[in-house]
Simulated assay, not measured.
Amino acid sequence: MKIKLTILSFAIILCFSSCHKEVRSEKGGIDIISNVYFEASRGLERMQSFHISKMSYSNDNLIEIVPDRTFPEMSKQIYFIKDSLCYAIGYERKTTIFSEIVLKQKPLLVWDKKEGAVFSKEWIPNYRNRRKLSDTVLFGKQYKRFEINSPWNYTRFYIYPTDTILPYSLYRHAELDYHGRLERIDSYNKKNDIFVTLQLIPRKNWDDIARELFEFDHFVTRSKNE
């Protein structure tokens, strides 16, 4: 009887572990978009939208395009990111080979990057004082939610339950706690009366510039190995 109970316990643990197994997405893209509402208590008419970052990834290789804020259709900077290291890519990108960039260029730690998507190892401020909220539906997707209220800010966080892990996350520690992907943060600055939304929008395909870079690098690497 004891043996049967042991086997049953092991099966339950194995099942529980498999239910929370993470799956890494091999290919796709991520957009980071922010909307800023000024004098929010008077209405949402005064608003400015920012396309902060356009990222595309192939396994652990990530291409980040930082749009120009004045002309969003233009690229202010392009980065190749791998293993927490960041390399700037110039306008000769059509002939860019990732392995050569890594050898020739001095990298920048992603934590020190000043533009585009923010890479941070810090925890959400006042995270231990968060309060659970009921689930909600936005844009056809159901989200888990929690809030953090302080004398200066009120912030809500929206986590989409999923086992699929992307190579970039806003706050990885919260995703681990809630078994999902943090896709939206709404924050209200009480002193300055400014309401800010930050959205992480996953997509299945690369953007055109990233496709150009990935396909050329893949072609050169494959040719060298043949």
Rank of each mutant, 00 (worst) to 15 (best):
V23F: 11
N35L: 12
A117C: 13
L170A: 13
F157V: 12
D207P: 00
A117L: 12
E147Y: 02
Y37K: 08
K76Y: 12
D208K: 11
T155S: 15
D112L: 08
E100R: 12
H20L: 08
D217M: 06
L108D: 02
Y158G: 08
P72N: 10
E212S: 09
S187T: 15
T96Y: 02
I7D: 02
L213T: 02
G116N: 03
N129D: 13
K82F: 02
G28T: 09
F119Q: 04
D135K: 14
I30N: 00
I97K: 09
A40I: 10
L8C: 10
K21A: 11
R93W: 04
I97R: 06
Y178F: 14
I30R: 05
K2F: 06
L166S: 02
R184V: 00
E73C: 03
F139T: 09
M47D: 11
L62H: 10
E92V: 00
L8P: 00
P67N: 08
R42V: 01
K224D: 10
P67C: 11
G90T: 00
P167A: 14
R203E: 11
I165D: 13
E22H: 07
D208G: 03
S223F: 07
E22C: 02
R172H: 14
L170D: 05
Y160C: 08
L213I: 08
F195T: 02
E26H: 09
W111H: 09
E26Q: 15
F71Y: 08
R172L: 06
T162Y: 06
K76D: 06
T96W: 01
F80I: 03
H20C: 06
S150G: 11
S18P: 00
L103A: 15
G28Y: 03
N153H: 15
G140M: 05
D217A: 09
Q142P: 00
A174Q: 14
D31K: 07
V102A: 01
L138E: 11
S99I: 04
L198V: 11
N189K: 12
D163Q: 13
H51V: 04
K82T: 04
C15N: 12
D217Q: 05
K54P: 03
W152H: 15
E64W: 01
K191M: 05
K224N: 13
T197M: 09
I32F: 04
I30H: 01
K191P: 01
R145V: 09
L5Q: 12
C15I: 05
A117M: 15
D177T: 11
I12Y: 05
